[in-house]
Nucleic acid binder design. Structure first.
Length: 348
DNA sequence: ATGGTCGGTGGCCGA
């Protein structure tokens, strides 16, 4: 186990082992460390991230101990028993992607949604906020660390995580398109995650469409290095491309239009050649499953939309995937984003 | 549903 996801040298080895077997009372664990402040800090971090499980029986008052979930105000009692990553449930790992269309306007909905779904990692697009105004504190209170790359008014991407975030990378490695905050990558629990907001493209005649095609070509180059990677990898986000006729409500009228154009499909195919699977389609082959609905034409109310948000995973990660869904309930809330979250679950 | 509705901004743009 990664030291950052356990106690490393903070406690003697036998206790590390005991934590994974019969559990250790909080008081015993604290006494065993010569740096108790650091130990307690790490205990709370692991509790928050779900690596550590807490059982409480109130000094024997309860016959069956109860599991104490982490919360911002939760405290440990001396006789609480601590367990480290032994339940198979604790290895269940959930990731999501969501174009939130302004994180500031959507924050109440996002916080409620995080509480309800309890994902480990969330990729957000269209945060529309400069880094100085990013709601770091509010997300921290909800149990999430965040890394982000934003700008005024447009674009903006972020990765939220209940676990330590490493090797953050903003934008393209070759420096392409630095003025648009559309790409951010990070590693969480050993999984490399690339979060992308692909340009929408407006119309095929516009320069914005050429920008979309160029951007996508650069994206393919960017993630080429993950080809045949032996470690888990996913690229997820708002791709602004409906992959097939099953992924939009009126394919005939959308033929050769932006978001359903042969040139876009060719690029998407090229991206997927990097041995990537569209996780949603591993589990659901139905047509009419959308992740975006137009505000203007009341698309959601008419059940007319497109599936343009997805999670593409390499074979290592795909093989551990247990489910992938689109959470249309989030789109049905008051003051929703025009996109719904896509959620995938894994047994890592 | 070829119009309309959102969100950010500060006078119209992007989706």
């Amino acid at each position: 186990m990664d030291p950052k996801e356990s106690f490393g040298n903070l406690i003697p080895d036998p206790l590390n082992k005991k934590l994974q077997q019969e559990g250790v009372p909080f008081s015993e664990l604290r006494q065993a460390s010569n740096v108790p402040e650091k130990l307690v800090e790490q205990i709370y971090r692991l509790w928050r991230s779900g690596t550590l499980r807490i059982e409480r029986n109130w000094n024997g008052i309860l016959d069956q101990p109860s599991n104490i979930p982490y919360s911002n105000s939760a405290c440990l009692l001396p006789d609480d028993r601590l367990y480290l990553g032994i339940s198979s449930l604790l290895h269940c790992w959930k990731i999501a992607t969501w174009n939130v269309n302004s994180i500031r306007t959507r924050l109440p909905l996002i916080l409620q949604w995080l509480k309800e779904h309890n994902p480990d990692v969330v990729c957000l697009q269209e945060t529309k906020v400069e880094d100085a105004q990013f709601p770091v504190w509010e997300l921290q209170q909800a149990g999430y660390e965040s890394v982000f790359s934003g700008q005024k008014s447009y674009n903006g991407v972020a990765i939220l995580s209940k676990h330590p975030i490493r090797d953050e990378q903003r934008g393209f490695r070759n420096g392409y398109d630095p003025e648009n905050a559309r790409l951010i990558a990070a590693t969480v629990s050993g999984v490399r995650i690339v979060n992308v907001y692909v340009p929408q493209g407006q119309t095929t005649e516009s320069e914005k469409f050429q920008y979309k095609l160029n951007f996508f070509a650069e994206l393919i180059q960017e993630i080429r290095k993950y080809r045949k990677s032996e470690s888990a990898f996913a690229i997820m986000g708002d791709f602004n491309i409906a992959p097939t006729a099953e992924d939009l409500s009126d394919p005939a009228s959308m033929r050769n239009k932006v978001s359903f154009h042969p040139e876009e499909h060719a690029l998407l195919a090229e991206l997927k050649e990097i041995e990537l699977s569209d996780l949603f389609r591993k589990f659901d082959q139905r047509s009419g499953q959308f992740s975006w609905w137009d505000f203007r034409t009341r698309g959601f109310e008419r059940d007319a939309g497109m599936r343009i948000d997805y999670i593409l995973a390499n074979s290592v990660l795909t093989s551990s995937c247990q489910a992938c869904i689109i959470d249309t309930e989030a789109r049905a809330q008051d003051r929703p984003s025009d996109h719904a979250p896509v959620i995938a679950e894994f047994n890592l």
